Amino acid sequence: MSQVPTTHHDHLLLADTPNAAGWARRHTRDVLERWQAPPGLIDTVLLVVSELVGNAVRHPTGTKQPERLTSSQLAKVQLIGLDLQLRGRAVLVQVADRDARPPVRQEADTEAESGRGLFLVEHMSDQWGYYHPSAGGKVVWAETSPDPMAHRRPATAETPPLANRAGRPQPFKPMFDEQLAADDPNLMGRVLVGLRGI
């Protein structure tokens, strides 16, 4: 990734609940419109954000979360970090979660209703990857420009497989629940974002 200076930066913490991807899309649209990003780029970034946050919500057990959480389940909810950076004409999206396992692209047939997330991210982004921050978990990132296909190199036999895509685009320190200050004035807002869908 080129060392393009970051001109705008935004970070949001989301509750790891089924409505996280929807809130991430709303927030991303607001931020990118404020940054006056082109409409086509906004649409592409919204798709990337939706897929990356949706993958972060899927828990290691592989079981789907219920649509409504009980108060005891809500007390155990983790946080997902969404980081947006405008770098020149490109937008860098980074999504941090607690699961350290690398992202795995699934082979989905034409009738499948899910399983194409990382395939879409790969094809809608100039480049993408993941890394393991010192705080634990992982950060999956994707950089998208107004015309991602213009910068893409054709796939060859030497193209590295997904398992070798580890790489860090730029230092990013994801915040997780135990790093939140008790007197954080935005804490209640973030809690309400997670509760709104319940």
Rank of each mutant, 00 (worst) to 15 (best):
H8L: 02
H8Q: 15
H8D: 05
H9P: 00
H9D: 14
H9Y: 13
D10L: 05
H11W: 05
L12H: 11
L12D: 04
L12P: 00
L12W: 01
L13P: 03
L13Y: 00
L13N: 11
L14N: 02
L14Q: 05
L14V: 05
L14Y: 02
L14M: 07
A15P: 00
D16F: 00
T17A: 14
P18Y: 01
P18A: 06
N19F: 03
N19V: 09
A20D: 03
A21V: 04
A21K: 06
G22W: 08
G22P: 00
W23R: 13
W23H: 15
A24P: 07
A24V: 09
A24F: 08
A24D: 05
R25L: 12
R25D: 02
R25F: 04
H27P: 00
H27V: 10
R29L: 11
D30Q: 12
D30A: 14
V31F: 00
L32A: 04
L32E: 01
L32G: 03
L32C: 03
E33D: 10
R34C: 02
R34M: 06
W35D: 13
W35N: 11
W35C: 12
A37N: 10
A37C: 15
A37I: 05
A37K: 07
P38R: 13
P38K: 12
P38S: 14
P38I: 06
P38Q: 14
P39E: 13
G40C: 01
G40L: 13
L41F: 06
L41K: 04
I42G: 01
D43H: 10
D43Y: 01
D43K: 13
T44D: 14
T44Q: 13
T44C: 08
V45L: 09
L46A: 08
L47M: 09
L47S: 11
L47C: 04
V48C: 10
V48M: 09
V49F: 06
V49N: 04
S50I: 00
S50C: 05
E51G: 03
E51A: 12
E51R: 13
L52E: 10
L52C: 11
L52A: 11
L52I: 09
L52S: 10
V53E: 02
V53R: 09
G54K: 11
G54P: 02
N55T: 08
N55F: 06
N55L: 15
N55Y: 06
A56L: 03
V57E: 06
V57K: 01
H59N: 10
P60M: 02
P60T: 07
T61V: 06
T61W: 08
G62Y: 01
T63D: 05
T63F: 08
K64H: 11
Q65C: 01
Q65V: 00
P66F: 12
P66Y: 12
P66R: 15
E67D: 15
E67G: 10
